[in-house]
Amino acid sequence: MSDQKYPKPLPTPSPETQRFWDGTKKHELWIPYCRSCQKSYWYPRDFCPHCGSRDVEWRRSGGKGRVYTFAIQYRAFHPGWTSEVPYVTALIDLDDGVRIFSNLVEVEADPKALRCEMPVEVVFEDVTEEITLAKFRPVSE
């Protein structure tokens, strides 16, 4: 897939987040973790926003979690998404202890098919040669 063919906004990895994007490219989900207060945090920073420590590292996530909340989008706010509506945005509570924003895929964009607390797992979408996005799909309990 070339960059020209992907019509939606793409992330631009920064030095402090590059490790995350390197991970998704390999179909791995890596989350920052504070060795000082022993908690994960989101999004990537070179220090821990819980305690201010700089003693932080990256840990690989199991990629499992639950839907904290979701919304169904019936309008595209960017022309690249016009053909995708309706689509589902969601906040996912990962079992690793962080909440991240993403899309729910492989599920009908219908309130009857969706509920808070439904279990999900990460699925990787290679959108360009450089960028892979981490999205989530429902799994059985």
């Binding site: 939606k8 631009t12 920064s14 909340t69 706010f77 960017h78 945005t89 924003f101 993403s102 996005l133």
Partner: peptide, 27 residues
């Protein structure tokens, strides 16, 4: 483009206020 919202919200098309407030309302 290095801002957190540009990297971790926009690629998933978070949309404008209707969609952020909708996420809160759904919960």
């Amino acid at each position: 483009p290095w801002f957190p919202a540009a990297q971790f919200e926009m690629p998933y098309h978070i949309g404008g206020p209707p969609s952020t407030y909708a996420l809160a309302c759904m919960r």
